[in-house]
Simulated assay, not measured.
Amino acid sequence: MFFWFMCYLVDMWLISASDGNCPKLPPVDNSIFIAKEWEGQILGTYLCTNGYHMVGEKTLFCNSSKGWNASVPECRLGHCADPLLVNGEFSSLEPVNVNDTITFKCNEHYILKGSSWSQCLENHTWVPPFPICKSRDCGPPENPTHGYFKGTGFNSGSNITYYCEARYRLVGTQHQQCIDGEWSSALPVCELFRKAPKPAELELEKALLAFQKREEICNAIAKFTQRLKKSGLTMEKVKYSLEKKKADLKARMLLGHCS
């Protein structure tokens, strides 16, 4: 109590040292208040004593032209903050003490996302964090770029079908269903069809390919002829040498067959 009183005196001194536009903050039961001046503003922090938890803003600041930014908080009985579950209920409404465990349950047409229980720890926190109750119905689905869907109603069990605009094809799952608040598959995409080449374009491509192969053959022949000239040979000598090797090979094959 003495410590709280001293902190409150410091608070009053800081406020009186300002321009006087900040109203006096009332004391909060079961709390300690600490105030200080920071960058031309008055900052006040409430700390709940052991066995109580805070409801509201912990730190308030006073602007000389606007006053305090929020209303005074409360320190309520209980070691951890009161449990909260929108569209659901929990097992206990009594003040929470350390090591207390509560369980959660969602209302009809809602599904629990997260842990079904939580425990109050010594550091005034709940672990695991509170879950949420999510509607079993799905929100309106998105439209893919250059695409759209068909289907009415987005409640649980509803079906939709995706389509693409002309010249686009669907990549992904076309038929989807709303299951426990989520659509059964990821959003598909619409890809642009690659334009098919015309017959004339195909013939031109074939002609260019053939010309390229012909050019490669001609280059190979030209290089071979240049090597013959450098070595002093002629096409006739090469032809004669090849014919002679061919005859020798036939003779060896005949001899090997007869033996």
Rank of each mutant, 00 (worst) to 15 (best):
T152K: 14
T152F: 09
T152S: 11
T152Q: 13
G153K: 10
G153H: 07
G153R: 02
F154P: 03
F154K: 01
F154Y: 15
N155D: 14
N155W: 05
N155K: 12
N155M: 09
N155F: 14
N155I: 11
N155L: 10
N155Q: 14
S156T: 07
G157M: 07
G157P: 05
G157C: 11
G157R: 06
S158W: 01
S158F: 02
S158I: 02
S158T: 12
S158H: 06
N159A: 12
N159T: 11
N159P: 00
I160R: 15
I160D: 10
T161E: 15
T161W: 01
T161S: 13
T161F: 05
Y162I: 03
Y162H: 02
Y162G: 06
Y162L: 06
Y162N: 04
Y163I: 02
C164S: 07
C164M: 09
C164N: 03
C164I: 02
C164K: 00
C164G: 03
E165G: 05
E165C: 08
E165Y: 10
E165M: 14
A166G: 04
A166T: 10
A166Y: 09
R167L: 08
Y168F: 15
Y168M: 07
Y168P: 00
R169D: 08
R169E: 09
R169C: 05
L170H: 08
L170P: 08
L170I: 08
L170S: 12
L170F: 10
V171M: 13
V171K: 10
G172W: 01
G172Y: 02
G172D: 00
G172K: 06
G172M: 01
G172E: 08
G172I: 00
T173W: 04
T173R: 07
Q174Y: 03
Q174K: 15
H175F: 10
H175S: 08
Q176V: 15
Q176I: 13
Q177S: 10
Q177M: 12
Q177R: 14
C178Q: 08
C178F: 04
C178N: 04
C178R: 01
C178M: 02
I179K: 13
I179Y: 11
I179P: 01
I179D: 09
I179L: 14
D180R: 07
D180A: 13
D180F: 12
G181A: 06
E182I: 08
E182F: 11
E182H: 13
E182M: 06
W183F: 04
S184A: 06
S184G: 10
S184R: 10
S185L: 04
A186V: 07
A186I: 09
A186Q: 11
A186R: 11
A186P: 04
A186C: 02
L187S: 08
L187Q: 08
P188E: 07
P188V: 09
P188R: 11
V189H: 03
V189I: 15
V189L: 05
V189Q: 14
V189T: 15
C190A: 04
C190T: 01
C190F: 01
E191W: 04
E191A: 04
E191H: 11
E191Q: 13
L192G: 03
L192S: 05
L192V: 05
L192P: 02
F193T: 04
F193H: 09
F193D: 00
F193G: 02
R194K: 15
R194V: 00
R194L: 00
K195E: 01
K195Y: 00
